[in-house]
Nucleic acid binder design. Sequence first.
DNA 1: GGGAAAATTGCAAACGTTTTAAATCGACGT
DNA 2: ACGTCGATTTAAAACGTTTGCAATTTTCCC
Lengths: 347, 347
Amino acid sequence: MPPRVTTLKELAASLDLSITTVSRALAGHEQIALRTRERVAQAARQAGYVPNTAARTLVSGRSGFVGLVLPIRGPNLVDSFLGEFVTGLGEGLVSHGADLILATAALGQSELSVLRHVVESGRADGVVVTRIAEVDERLAYLRERGFPFVAHGRLLDSDFAYNWLDTDGAHAFGEAFDMLYDLGHRHFGLVTISEPMTFRHLRQDGLAAAIGRRGDPSVRLDVATAPRFDRGARIQAINRMLQQPERPTAVIALFDELALTVMEEAVRAGLSVPRDLSVVGFDNVVASAYAPPGLTTFDASIRQCAREIADMLLTVIAERPTAPLTRLIRPTLVPRASHGPAPQTRS
Amino acid sequence: MPPRVTTLKELAASLDLSITTVSRALAGHEQIALRTRERVAQAARQAGYVPNTAARTLVSGRSGFVGLVLPIRGPNLVDSFLGEFVTGLGEGLVSHGADLILATAALGQSELSVLRHVVESGRADGVVVTRIAEVDERLAYLRERGFPFVAHGRLLDSDFAYNWLDTDGAHAFGEAFDMLYDLGHRHFGLVTISEPMTFRHLRQDGLAAAIGRRGDPSVRLDVATAPRFDRGARIQAINRMLQQPERPTAVIALFDELALTVMEEAVRAGLSVPRDLSVVGFDNVVASAYAPPGLTTFDASIRQCAREIADMLLTVIAERPTAPLTRLIRPTLVPRASHGPAPQTRS
DNA sequence: GGGAAAATTGCAAACGTTTTAAATCGACGT
DNA sequence: ACGTCGATTTAAAACGTTTGCAATTTTCCC
């Protein structure tokens, strides 16, 4: 094993060249003679030289890192979202030689303050922001600061120009309605959350628009709402919906977790899915494939989205485009066995 | 909003102090007058000053980062492992003011070369290494390099001293056997993989040891082996096991993914779980709670383990202990409905 | 062979922080 | 009034890299 060369100075000395020349040679500058460039590259490879990130960052102002502030999560089950998202980001970044920094918010520390720290400390050249609220202080900060970022999700306020990638929940919910309508369903249930998240807004709007397009006055929609993390309230709201005298024949849930609860409660109430009740979710979490009879849902291909977000962010960092980059990804229907024709007779 | 102060120089100028004094004041050195320290702290807070990471790292040699090289993953489903692991690491690190760097291996690039790059570039003060193979070149490199690390998992070679945290799979598999034996089972099946992973070794040893402890010659163990990522071969091996004239009454799978396949194939073969066949897994993936009738398995509390790994690594970095730090975590049995008494009669 | 132009290489400053060693300032005792 | 001591502050070097500008070498033409 050759003696490890750790600095440019050492490498330069061993080649009898100046630090400047070696630095430029490694960077591939044309002004350095080809022969020299090759000689340097060869020596660097053989000596296992890796440039010091801190020094490079300090002088160039570019760290080669992209930051992600981990959403604060309760002690309950972690789904596969984070893993897929992080994997996708990594895949997107690695092709451009960038890496990912994960910053965690301490207990009682706001996500914004962590974000601010990441930005101000110069650790990252840009950041990815997830789970956008309808009005989001993180985006306001980043925009004021003029710091490169891409949001996964959207704000409600459309005056505010920024880079985002989002899944087209509105379209998916319209598709879900159309599919169920064509199967004969006329009485629908929507299970949703009470928090002001943009995705809730958009999906509900998409559903309402699809209903409107049919212009069928016999279509009826019941809505069950509960706080996002209050499982008890959620179950209660769902049961209220299912146990009314005229219950819906098809339930669309804002996301799979809610849909799975609907299926559980339906079974508990003696209903058969999909014979008595069709259920459709959104997200395609792993469990939706295993929960009988198999949940029909939409796949947003998180990993692929994250990869594109990484690409977008790297573009923003490198080119600082004036017009914002935006991408709306259409999720794909994953038809399983939780939906079917509307029951013929009603009690 | 006050004009943003970005460097120590600016902050020092605004306070009419030297850079040195401000730096020391912020670091809380006793030698700086208490009054001055307070004045500086106040000014820094108000101006939103955040020290530049690169500069600090360059001079101090400490980056405040811990590295993790993402295991290369196929295109198939990502379970929640990575998300939980990363969340746990973040939680463990944040209390000490450290953050996480995630490096991804590009297609065709070895995990080792990425690790080497992370280490040599000085981006991280220590690294976490997951999915340890029976003989692992990554650990060999880190040890030779004298770089701080903690492994999640173990090598087979016990001469090699290093810091690790592992789940006690041997104990769990012993526990599974004992539980099933006490339920009357005598004919067992083991579904495992053909790759040389230490955890496979340990779990199988734990099972063998438990069998030995009973000293009951009527106990019989069939083994079905398939490559880890070859779903077809896996299904074939499982069916061979289930369709032999005298099939096992209880199957223990190396991990949940295998156990879920066993349950699926059992149902397909007309067997009822747990009436005709008991199945036990390991990992407690999310799907195991949803796959009917509910898979009995072991929970290794990944998130908590990751948190402890972070603690261990920070200790190693700060104190460079001479004796290796090791922790063996006992997983907890999650009894669901996939196991039961051995069937009475045999065809 | 002389000079200019082109090609190649090198010097030195800069990035923002930490840290060693030294300077400054008061106070106090003699 | 002088030296001394302790408390407080500061100047300057260092970390390893990139880069503007200048220096050196080579090439080429007349």
